[in-house]
Design a protein around this nucleic acid. Structure first.
Lengths: 192, 192
DNA sequence: TGTAAGTTAGTTAATAATAACTAACTTTGA
DNA sequence: TCAAAGTTAGTTATTATTAACTAACTTACA
């Protein structure tokens, strides 16, 4: 389990990445933001890499929770996808700094250990999304003239860019509200 | 105009970013790769920021060329979009390091000057893409039940994720070939 | 036309700033 | 009272950049 301080460090680290990019995440900035000295950080994490790993672990748990919840859901495929979208929008609305992590492939580029963890998360989510779409196709809810694999790219790509635009606008509008409307267009595109 | 050496520096810088991310772009790495001393870099660029600006300028010219060429094209809207896709795929096939720059929002995060330049490029491209789609809608080539703005997000988001996946696979397949097939699915989705 | 002056593109050595991290000491609270 | 969590004052490595200098050219003009 994590201590309160560890959770605080991860939260502040996420904010730093979100605001200034990965180059903004330094032990100095971290300690300044929290209000303790630099060495005090090392009382809670062995190294900076350990902090990054903890961030990815947090992200992994979070998205896997969202994705896997849909698998065991009784709803139809499109409802599942809608849930998936809206759950993401809700998460990002509460913790905008998480948006940076969804694009973390560009951020965590040094340590092989980090790259491996990211790849895992992406592969898992991709598999779940594709399997939901496939089920919807077998079900005649979702159009079958396009391979599930490709539909998955279109759906996920749209989600990503939509969120990215929100981030780029400086979170200037209500993501959950606008995202709900946007999913209506995604639905039109994938439905049978 | 740029000298041969300046072009070389930009090219090597792109490769460094592509291989190691923005953290891999240091004057030391740059000079080592080229085979000159670190201070020699400063005979060709005033500062590191100037190198980054030159990269973005290069990227801007490149994409604006691709996008604006389509505007003055006589083809119908969907053919224009196909051109747009395939031209991008061709560019990335020849210069895979350019893929990193398409996601440069995550990379160039420090200097306000860089952020401004990126925002410009994105805004311009977005406008052109949306206007092509709008023309296609007025033309009854492209479905009109979805706003051009939203179709633009779906089309661009799909393109981005498709390219990202190719990068993530370590450029292990032929982007132009697979991309041509992928555009067939995009066509199915947007056509009337 | 040949030389003086200027330019280009490089060198080595040194700079200040910042990075992650550590050793040794002090405070604090159950 | 003792261990967890903090401090100060350092370390080493790396960053971008500058200073001082040089070899090899090109240009201008007496």
């Amino acid at each position: 389990m994590q201590t309160e301080r560890q959770k605080e460090i991860i939260s502040v680290a996420l904010n730093l990445i979100s605001e200034k990019g990965i180059q903004g995440l330094t032990i100095k900035n971290l300690s300044k933001e929290i209000g303790i000295s630099e060495p005090a950080i090392y009382r809670h994490f062995e190294s900076k890499i350990d902090i990054l790993i903890a961030i990815l672990e947090f992200f992994k748990k979070n998205t896997e929770l969202i994705f896997k919840a849909e698998l065991s859901n009784e709803a139809n495929a499109i409802k599942k996808l809608e849930h998936l979208f809206l759950n993401h929008f809700a998460t990002f609305s509460i913790t905008p700094s998480m948006v940076s992590v969804i694009f973390s492939e560009e951020i965590f580029r040094n340590e092989p250990l980090l790259i491996e963890k990211i790849s895992e998360v992406i592969a898992t989510n991709d598999k779940i999304l594709t399997s939901i779409i496939l089920a919807g196709q077998n079900n005649s809810e979702i159009r079958s003239d396009i391979e599930a694999k490709n539909l998955s790219i279109i759906v996920m790509g749209s989600l990503r860019l939509f969120v990215k635009k929100w981030q780029f606008s400086n979170y200037s509008y209500n993501l959950l509200e606008e995202g709900t409307k946007f999913f209506d267009t995604v639905r039109l595109i994938i439905k049978k």
